[in-house]
Each structure stands twice: as structure tokens, then as C-alpha cells.
Design a protein around this nucleic acid. Structure first.
Lengths: 102, 102
DNA sequence: CAGTATCCAAAGGGATACTG
DNA sequence: CAGTATCCCTTTGGATACTG
């Protein structure tokens, strides 16, 4: 039942959608993700990105632009989640169809 | 980015570990799951099981014993999560090794 | 055994304003 | 743009006691 610990790193309402966004576009900026993930606040996004970075799932790069932009990409380790996220997405779509009938 | 909606049904700290428990043993009783999932309280387990049942991922059966026992199994639809949960477990184990070094 | 009920502390998280 | 800070309400969830 060790999934528990695994999921801690992906816990909360937002981590999977955030990773999905970065995953889908390969690289993504703060404000992009803010738009990609419906309902998230800048405060939450900031907090979640920080946690994902600490857990070495994403990498943060400050670009030397004016004003500065920050780019997020998956780490090599984060990439190993791609398949699972794809499966979850597919499952979610079929689940909606099955239960909610959307 | 539709994962968001998909995950709602699996949201919270406990749903995945609960499903894992039922999944692993095929059928599982309330008190068994209480033991399987470290840290969960009976209140939370009760609440989460109810939600999983509403979302048609698990099926609840009251057995005619004295005192009564209640058995939980995955529904056919819940079974479709097996692969994903297995992958998440595997990912979690490798993640722990990689980051936390346990 | 399988829950429910209650109390209450802690964490989550939105809205808004502000900064380098 | 990419955050941080603050205020404050909402949700989560532990501990404990109780019921059929």
C-alpha cells in the first residue's frame, strides 16, 4: 500500500493539472500555467510549483528578458510521470462519460 | 487538461490508498482497510468509502453475519483503475528511492 | 463490527493588494 | 511578468464517545 507516500508528492487539487500543462507544452511559463489550470490562484500556483521543484519533478529557469519570464520544464525524473498522466487523462475522460454523462 | 475533473473523484489524501487496499485483496472489510491504510480514522474512511460508492468505483455489501460485516469490492468500472494504481505504486517506489533515499 | 455524532484545531485556499 | 503578503473564510480531519 506504499502508494500513499508516492501520492504525497502529487497531493492536493492542483499538482497533476500543473504537471499536465507543462507536460503538454514541454515548457511553460507561470502565467501560461495560470491560464491552463482553471480556477487556480497565483498563490496556489506559486506554492505548488515550489513543492514540485523541491521534489525534483520540475525545473525552474529564469530567462533574461525584460520583464523577466520564468520557464518550467519537467526534469528527467518528472518525465517518468508522463505515461501515468496520460493514462489518468484517458481514464478521466471515460469516467466522465460513464458517470456524469457529460 | 481534463485530468482535473478526473482527479476530483480520486481527490484527497485517502482514496488511492483505499482503492489499493481493496484492489490488492479483491474484497476487503471496513476494519481491514482501517488497518491497511496507515493513519486514516474511521470517520475519514467512512466518508471516503461513501464517496467512492457514489462514484461507482466500489460496491458495498452487507454480509449476514453476527455482528454484521461489510465487504467492499471494486466495481467493473473501478477495475479499470487497477493498471493506473499499479503504475502509481511502482512510480512511488522508484520516486522514494530516487529522492528520499529510503 | 461498522459505522455516526460532536467538538475543535489546523490546514487549505480565495481575493486582493503589493513588489522587484 | 512572476511572484509575495495579508486577511479571513472554508474545509479537512483527529480524538473521542456512542449506537444498532
Amino acid at each position: 500500500m506504499g502508494v500513499h507516500d508516492a501520492m504525497d508528492v502529487l497531493s492536493g487539487k492542483w499538482k497533476i493539472p500543473i504537471i499536465s500543462s507543462i507536460c503538454y507544452y514541454n515548457e511553460r511559463r507561470f502565467s501560461d500555467i495560470l491560464n491552463d489550470v482553471p480556477g487556480i490562484s497565483n498563490k496556489m500556483l506559486s506554492k505548488e510549483l515550489k513543492e514540485l521543484e523541491i521534489n525534483k519533478l520540475i525545473k525552474r529557469t529564469v530567462l533574461d528578458t525584460q520583464p523577466i519570464t520564468v520557464q518550467y520544464v519537467l526534469t528527467e525524473h518528472g518525465e517518468t510521470l508522463k505515461g501515468i498522466i496520460k493514462d489518468l487523462t484517458a481514464w478521466g475522460i471515460s469516467h466522465r462519460k460513464k458517470i456524469i454523462g457529460k
